[in-house]
Design a protein around this nucleic acid. Sequence first.
DNA 1: CTGTTAGCGCTTTCAC
DNA 2: GTGAAAGCGCTAACAG
Lengths: 341, 341
Amino acid sequence: MPYDPHVDSIPRVKMEDVARTAGVSVATVSKVVNGRYGVAQSTLTKVQEVIDQLGYEASLGARSLRSHRTNVIGILVAEFEPFSTELLKGASSAVGPTGYELLAYSGGGAPGADVGWERRYLSRLSGTLIDGAIIVTPTVVEANPGIPVVAVDPHTGPTGMPTVDSDNLGGAVLATEHLLNLGHRRIAFLGGRPDLESARLREAGFRQAMAAAGVPVDESLVRVGGYRRETADEPARVLLDRPDPPTALFAANDLSAIQVLAVARERGLSVPADLSVIGFDNVPESVLASPALTTINQPLQRMGAEALRLLVDLIGGRERAPHVRLPTELVVRASCAPPRS
Amino acid sequence: MPYDPHVDSIPRVKMEDVARTAGVSVATVSKVVNGRYGVAQSTLTKVQEVIDQLGYEASLGARSLRSHRTNVIGILVAEFEPFSTELLKGASSAVGPTGYELLAYSGGGAPGADVGWERRYLSRLSGTLIDGAIIVTPTVVEANPGIPVVAVDPHTGPTGMPTVDSDNLGGAVLATEHLLNLGHRRIAFLGGRPDLESARLREAGFRQAMAAAGVPVDESLVRVGGYRRETADEPARVLLDRPDPPTALFAANDLSAIQVLAVARERGLSVPADLSVIGFDNVPESVLASPALTTINQPLQRMGAEALRLLVDLIGGRERAPHVRLPTELVVRASCAPPRS
DNA sequence: CTGTTAGCGCTTTCAC
DNA sequence: GTGAAAGCGCTAACAG
């Protein structure tokens, strides 16, 4: 027997209830709720009292359907994982002074199989419910979203859409140079999602640093890891099971690097003695990995905060440089060492 | 000039547009969208084509206003911080198979000043928009929320409201015993928010373990830290600035413990040589602290997943034990040592 | 200053 | 099998 709200619960108190109790019309209550002018002080007080007493709160759904202004900012993510939740923390810390509230929306399904989620979520929420949206790692960029939208780490890099990202190319160069400086030459690259600009740039940085060092890239050591543990598992196995395995591996993000660590452990490989592993992102989980993961820091929380501020400015119609790029840096921990012998 | 959707953007495609293009009525489109019976195969195909072509997606606001069934679960939090985002990750990982989508909602303001946010958010979203809600650390428990609600770590402990929490009392005993076993006797307690059951239980566990060890509690060493860095700062200073400071401190959560670390550093105190510090929660940030924080692990992600499953069962009308309690455990890292001399 | 009247975009009877 | 009409809870003109 499914849950039936009409059977075992008191219905929500609605504006009509307030109006009846206060002896006024719903229109008047609406004016009070929205602080509109043209209400007698006495009426205002009376209505406010009833509102407090009944604990009335306007329904977001109904209100936004009518007014197209909600004071709510949407953050659309494929999934709540370390990357998006760090952004969320940053956005949350920055939202206070703006007067907006935050609504983070995510479907459940496997993000890989679910291409176009950002467009669906956006049309589901826009026009109603939210005044603007931050979309995290969108792959399909909508030409005209209908509401202001800021993308974080999008597919196409800085195009027409306002964007916040970090210096992926520079970070990848840093990571590769770190491995190179330790003396590695046989370096594998476990790439990200090929549809994301960040993944493309990280691979480009890898190749650029290798070329600059005069070390040829062994193409059979370059694989797609897909940015997730599940998708990184198989290519990690392939790489480590080779008769001539790499001495070092650069994974395009921390999650896949962590999966590489797991596979290496399974194989009895010691990190960093037998294999050096470097990641990208510096999510909190990377410190928990064992050994603690050397990685490239992306200022995720700052990115979230910047995205929020950019969006608020867009909604307010303030002119802004539509692209914010934050720096990356090398974080040395315990997963890299010089190659054996 | 504020942003005006009517001026510089194409309006959202709505059901009416689909109906017109397909040459049918909106009622028919609605039936197709919702998979209702009573539509000719040919019509169905035609309408579906138009939907795909136009990229139509029903507005959550409008739909839920009418249907009171949304397939969306709300997660209501005061703020996106380490605690709530860990729960979010857990809920997100468990939501896939259920077919629900997740909507996490948070206001911006300072959570301390904002008592009753949970009631406000709930009435704002319930009745429309969400089928059920997970409320994180609510203080004001609503008798009759109108929709199924599961509380995580609530004010009043397991009352009528279905609840997920962890063994706060046992964990606090573990923490205190750890300090005691190291040889500490002069132990300070930096409490949480006095309105939360978890804070009460952690203090009770502290006192219980002290009593069991026959060590009297110095009441002047017991302070309220409020669970947040800002609120923990002042009491931490008071405690450490005493002429006779404690040799060890048990903070009721990691965030306040981390603040204690910061204050100790400011004071030139070395942790753990001069002062042992133990936290509670084991949020990812606790590993990043320096020194890495010894703490009590709460299985936050599992708690999020359990809360989600419990809520889904409630919505579906399945009988369930309305209270899930998960175990806590000691995580030894680097912030505790025997007292000096 | 206040109430009446129209809808917002959608679902749902209930005729046809 | 399909469409017309009513209305979810609220806000925005407009009358009074």
